[in-house]
Design a protein around this nucleic acid. Structure first.
Lengths: 213, 213
DNA sequence: TAGATTGTTAATCGATTAACAATC
DNA sequence: TAGATTGTTAATCGATTAACAATC
């Protein structure tokens, strides 16, 4: 099977952004080369695993040398699809929706927020960083004129599946869901469920566990 | 080895909050019993895995009957440590810090936010939902008088490790980190790194993958 | 060249799934 | 009782780690 064409396991996918972060950091610090052994020490993984992971996508290193940091960074950028631009909308302009809209780092990475949507008349018409909050009723009309890649779901859980379905119907290729419910999507749509409360509960679990109860 | 005392794998821990959510939903819908087969269909897991997972913590079911929903919910609540109260502080009162402070659901679950902290003089002295924003310089003094369980890190990444260290020094048992850097903590402290950008990058990865590129 | 480190195969480990006796 | 479904053991699968030949 040709490199880069095989199905990548979820475990590997989860590690990719971490590699990207660590290698970017090295690059920013002016480091020009790194071995899997050095990276393994920094990241708390085995060198073996790092080499296996990279080799899912190609041969990025050189025997006796290691990896060229800049090259590796470029590979990871491309693998993650971060060499492209993505158009987003945020559905739900409450706390989370606004926090994401205000977070400028995503835009620097090529994730462009085209609009927010909400059901609340007091919010509709306002802008966040110049991004207009529109009536969620206009979602379909808007998407017909402005094709998007990613719909961010930041509604209460009761509306989450419905607005996600709508976004998919109008061409969204991915759902980034912050509502505390698992969103179901067709097989050709990507979904990431970010469950903040789940994350918090694992902390209370671990606190209890560490206390030895 | 006695039930409930063995080391629980990370994979099981990640599924626990999901079980909790689904079982709570069943309970709220008035369902009184559920079999592992029914739950498996709803959650997209195998019935075998569900039974294995539950049996890490005890024997919650009954042959020929299944699981009593209310009992199972109580077990999961206790397992996750959600039968207790937790005191939190939020360090960094920017977008994410404020969004979390405004999110009232956590409080309902027993996670009490005692204070926010920031470095910005314009924010210090303000309140969010009655929770005061204090000068981050006062973190140590505050924690000496108000012991906390969880420190939420919502600072820029350059300050994240430093404020986490400080929180741990003054008795924090867990770190909930939203800064885009991996926080290191002693072995007796729990940590959850919530990397929103990592999550977003897996979406761009998957979009590319689904397109078959 | 000699030393270093990769890419890759083989071995190990752990997690998931299947099977089924126990029992409600 | 007969049917259903658990708890648990055994089998399978996949992911991680170890080892090492290839090679820079």
């Amino acid at each position: 099977m040709a490199k880069g064409s095989g199905r990548i396991s979820e475990a590997v996918i989860r590690r990719l952004p971490r590699y990207y972060r660590y290698v970017r950091e090295l690059m920013q610090n002016g480091v020009t080369r790194v071995s899997s052994a050095e990276l393994s020490k920094r990241m708390g993984l085995t060198a073996s695993q790092i080499r296996q992971d990279f080799n899912c996508f190609g041969e990025f290193g050189q025997q006796g040398y290691g990896y060229n940091v800049e090259e590796l960074y470029e590979h990871l950028t491309r693998i993650l699809g971060l060499d492209k631009k993505y158009h987003l909308i945020i559905i739900g302009a409450g706390n989370i929706g606004q926090a994401i809209a205000n977070y400028t780092d995503f835009e620097k990475e090529g994730f462009i927020i085209d609009s927010l949507f909400d059901i609340n008349p007091r919010l509709i018409g306002l802008s966040i960083r110049g991004i207009e909050i529109r009536d969620v009723e206009q979602l379909g009309t808007f998407l017909q004129d402005h094709p998007i890649d990613i719909a961010v779901i930041a509604t209460p859980k009761s509306k989450a599946q419905e607005v996600a379905d709508n976004a998919v119907k109008y061409g969204a290729k991915a759902i980034w869901n912050f509502a505390p419910v698992d969103i179901a999507v067709p097989a050709d749509v990507a979904v990431e469920n970010v469950h903040l409360s789940d994350s918090l509960y694992t902390l209370s679990f671990k606190i209890r566990e560490l206390k030895g109860e």
